[in-house]
């Protein structure tokens, strides 16, 4: 599913024109252009500043409604989106897997059509099946934001990770990025690989063989798979530890003790990376499993900044998908505002 993309000229004030790359849905990083990613990150910086205001709530999206459709349990992503909506003044309606008619056998299509019939201005969707957000976007008129679909993509996580890297490193271009863990089942890793490789980052994947299959190399050019974590961390600027999903540990091939022994991110191992390397984790953390307390709470950890940046990224995204005049019509080029329109 391609993101409908139009470059639209916008007039600010009397005569200045600025190009704002606009898109209707956010389904994945893969279908975004580099320009669109940069644009979203730039705009997110403005919302970062708002997180520091004494009064953080805006009325910008007053009267708008955003549906949060969480077909799969989620705490932090849901709260982050709900808070982003609240800070922009939008109302939210929440559909949660355990309390919905999904349990009564309603199809995904019927559920999203029902949500759309309540006339929200956007639908934020989390689903256990890869491609669920694309499926919904192809059938709905309302903008769809993918909040994680199966093992496919989690675009807002990759954007908030990029924003965190941008803050700490000054740029996201040409960094050495090491991702450790269950890459094969991680939509976070997949979105991050798409995003960071676009900016010339050299990506190293590390983890148990069954979690780092050769196919991952085809995601982007130049991806390395390295077996030993000590080698994988060599010269890393950014280290990303993924959450080990406990249910996958039951596979007889791998025990938790073995994972800790071979892949846990410890202070000793982190010393292989550059001295100014930063540590990211999408959360929620299994302390003592994929990451040691001393790393999670150490000076190189940006894990809480990631959470704060998540708000900024989601506010920027909601503002651009819901704040404009075209929330319910596709992106036909429109005329810029007239001179002296605001004043």
């Amino acid at each position: 599913m391609q993101i409908a993309c139009k470059i639209r000229r916008q007039a600010i004030g009397a005569d200045q024109t600025t190009v704002a790359p606009s898109f209707r849905h956010l389904l994945g990083i893969e279908s975004l252009t580099t320009g669109q990613i940069s644009f979203l990150l730039e705009q997110s910086k403005i919302f970062q500043a708002i997180q520091r205001n004494p009064l953080k709530k805006l009325a910008t999206l007053r009267g708008k409604t955003v549906a949060l459709a969480f077909f799969e349990p989620s705490t932090r992503t849901r709260i982050s989106f709900a808070t982003a909506c609240a800070r922009l003044g939008a109302d939210t309606m929440l559909l949660q897997a355990d309390a919905s008619s999904l349990k009564k056998g309603e199809s995904l299509l019927d559920t999203v059509l029902t949500l759309e019939a309540m006339k929200p201005d956007a639908i934020i969707m989390r689903h256990a099946s890869s491609g669920a957000a694309d499926f919904a976007a192809a059938r709905l008129d309302v903008p769809v934001i993918n909040a994680g679909d199966g093992t496919h993509e989690h675009p807002t996580q990759a954007l908030l990770d990029a924003l965190t890297i941008l803050d700490r490193k000054g740029a996201i271009e040409n960094l050495n990025v090491t991702i450790v863990g269950d890459i094969a089942h991680s939509r976070v890793a997949r979105s991050n690989i798409h995003l960071l490789s676009r900016f010339g980052c050299r990506i190293t994947l590390c983890g148990p063989g069954m979690w780092v299959p050769r196919e991952l190399e085809s995601l982007a050019p130049g991806i390395r798979r390295v077996a030993r974590i000590e080698d994988a961390l060599q010269d890393a600027d950014v280290v990303m530890a993924l959450r080990v999903q406990q249910e996958r540990m039951n596979e007889p091939a791998l025990a938790a003790e073995e994972y800790i022994l071979l892949y846990q991110l410890t202070p000793e191992r982190l010393r292989m990376a550059r001295p100014d390397a930063i540590v990211l984790h999408p959360g929620p953390m299994n302390r003592g499993l994929e990451i040691d307390d001393a790393v999670a709470d150490g000076p190189q950890s940006c894990i809480l900044e990631q959470v704060t940046n998540g708000l900024a990224v989601r506010m920027a995204l909601l503002f651009h998908l819901v704040g404009g005049p075209n929330a319910t019509q596709s992106g036909a080029p429109q005329t810029g505002e007239g001179p002296n329109a605001a004043d």
Partner: peptide, 9 residues
């Protein structure tokens, strides 16, 4: 914002 004819920047 919902009436001006351009994507807000």
């Amino acid at each position: 914002l919902s009436t001006v004819g351009a994507q807000p920047l």
